[in-house]
């Protein structure tokens, strides 16, 4: 346990020193503020809380940005440390390999958590104040978005470890991480869309598609956030359209990224235990 916390604390310290945290906070904040400015116009029109509109836009933003930041954080964790010779030192010390990975995981999730909390937190408060207050309850939506974004990020951090542990070169791990991102958040949805268009009898749309949607942690994250806010009021296409046909709904959809994170951590620990540095 001591080793886990030591490794986690060092990852956070490195994240602060190499400006990872500040940089990713800034990126998230910049995108969020752009959405805030663009999102304020329709908010007034449909009489929805401005903050709620922003949360809806931000959850779509999260689907793209958070996995990317998470993978960029984690792809170097094992392959890079072997390259630099520091993992050999850590593995030679009396800390188990499982503890090494859990420590890194906690540290990286904390780094991502700080960045997401700052970026979205500030954007949420700015929106709230810019629209002259309003219901405080809308801020809960921001909190929910932050928490679920961190869970989504944790999933992709763990998936990044698989990439990092299964190759020897950092460069290969980076390429693998980008491929994972491209597949999970871009190509997967396109493929599902293609499937919907191609299926004639509707069996795919009603029986297979909802499961495939929930299977992808990024889509599950979006579904949860869309259904959690008053989807009808915002006029969300995804939550409103697919919501009725979903096999699971509400908080249960978040089980998808959590299960993925657990499986990915387990698999990367398994690979790490077999690494011969």
């Amino acid at each position: 346990m001591h080793g886990v916390l030591t490794i986690a604390a060092t990852e956070i310290r490195i994240g602060l020193r190499n400006r990872w945290i500040i940089l990713s906070s800034m990126i998230l904040l910049a995108f969020a503020l752009i959405l805030v400015l663009l999102g304020s116009a329709p908010g007034g029109e449909v009489k929805t809380d401005a903050v709620t509109v922003v949360v809806a836009s931000l959850s779509t933003l999260s689907v793209y940005l958070v996995p990317l930041i998470a993978l960029l954080l984690s792809f170097d964790a094992i392959a890079g440390e072997i390259d630099r010779g520091t993992l050999q030192l850590v593995l030679a010390s009396p800390v188990s390999r499982g503890a090494v990975l859990v420590g890194k995981f906690l540290g990286h999730v904390a780094v991502l958590g700080i960045a997401v909390s700052f970026g979205y937190g500030i954007a949420g408060i700015v929106t709230y104040l810019a629209n002259g207050g309003g219901e405080l309850g809308a801020l809960i939506g921001v909190g929910r978005l932050i928490v679920t974004s961190i869970i989504l990020g944790a999933t992709f951090i763990a998936i990044g470890y698989i990439a990092s542990a299964s190759v020897r070169q950092t460069g290969t791990a980076a390429a693998l991480a980008i491929a994972i991102w491209l597949f999970a958040v871009v190509l997967y949805d396109l493929a599902l869309l293609g499937g919907l268009l191609a299926s004639q009898d509707g069996f795919f749309a009603s029986e297979v598609f909802p499961w495939l949607l929930v299977l992808n942690p990024a889509d599950a994250f979006r579904l949860y956030n869309m259904s959690a806010i008053d989807a009808a009021a915002v006029g969300s296409n995804l939550g409103g359209g697919a919501g009725s046909a979903l096999p699971i709904s509400g908080l249960a959809t978040m089980a998808s990224p959590v299960i993925w994170a657990g499986m990915a951590l387990g698999l990367s620990t398994f690979i790490l235990k077999r690494i011969r540095p």
């Binding site: 030591t6 060092t10 020193r17 010779g85 010390s93 009396p94």
Partner: peptide, 25 residues
């Protein structure tokens, strides 16, 4: 163990590096 080539995190101070391994051990 001291490997032939090792590159410690550049952003940490020497004391932090040694303290890190002291804690692990």
């Amino acid at each position: 163990y001291l490997p032939e080539q090792v590159a410690f995190p550049k952003m940490l101070t020497g004391r932090e590096v040694v303290r890190f391994y002291a804690r692990l051990k």
